[in-house]
Simulated scan of single mutants.
Amino acid sequence: MVRHPVSKYTANTQLEHLHARYTGTGHADLSKYEWLAHQHRDTLSSIVGHPTLTSYLAIADGESMGRVKFEMTERMLQPCGPPPKKDDD
């Protein structure tokens, strides 16, 4: 079986599709703040999405699972604080 190399056009199309489908995938112009915010949001959504992790945190903090889910969801808005000011030259 002969494999043909993936053309540059096909690779770029697949990459654009990934970026459109999964917002957390990085690109060349991604700032450090944006990358960190994606990482934090992914972690928080994983904790909220897995009941055992939420239960573990609720027990460790002495809070209800509903409170932990609420706080994690609220932290997703600005997980790393306000965005830095952009320098427009």
Results as ranks from 00 to 15, higher is better:
Lys69Cys: 10
Ala60Cys: 07
Pro51Trp: 13
Glu63Arg: 14
Ile59Ser: 04
His4Ile: 08
Ala11Cys: 06
Gly66Pro: 11
Pro5Glu: 15
His19Ser: 03
His38Leu: 01
Ala37Asp: 11
Met72Phe: 15
Asn12Arg: 11
Arg21Pro: 00
Ser64Asp: 13
Asp88Arg: 14
His17Phe: 01
Pro79Gly: 12
Val6Gly: 00
Met65Asn: 09
Ala37Arg: 12
Ala11Gln: 14
Asp89Arg: 11
Cys80Trp: 03
Gln39Phe: 03
Ile59Leu: 01
Leu36Asp: 15
Phe70Gln: 15
Asp29Ala: 07
Pro84His: 11
Thr54Val: 04
Leu36Thr: 15
Trp35Met: 08
Ala37Phe: 02
Ala20Gln: 05
Ala58Arg: 11
Leu15Thr: 10
Met72Cys: 15
Lys69Gly: 02
Pro82Ile: 09
Leu15Trp: 05
Lys8Phe: 03
Gly49Ala: 09
Ser46Trp: 02
His19Leu: 11
His38Pro: 00
Ser55Phe: 12
His4Asp: 02
Asp88Thr: 14
Met1Leu: 08
Lys69Arg: 15
Thr43Lys: 00
Asp42Gln: 06
Pro83Ile: 12
Ser7Thr: 15
Ser46Leu: 05
Trp35Ser: 14
Asp88Trp: 13
His17Pro: 00
Arg41Lys: 12
Gly62Phe: 05
Glu71Val: 02
Gly81Gln: 09
Glu74Leu: 07
Leu30Ala: 06
Thr54Asn: 05
Leu15Arg: 10
Lys8Pro: 03
Asn12Ile: 08
Thr52Gly: 05
Asp42Ser: 06
Asp42Met: 06
Asp42His: 08
Leu15Ala: 08
Phe70Asp: 14
Arg41Glu: 02
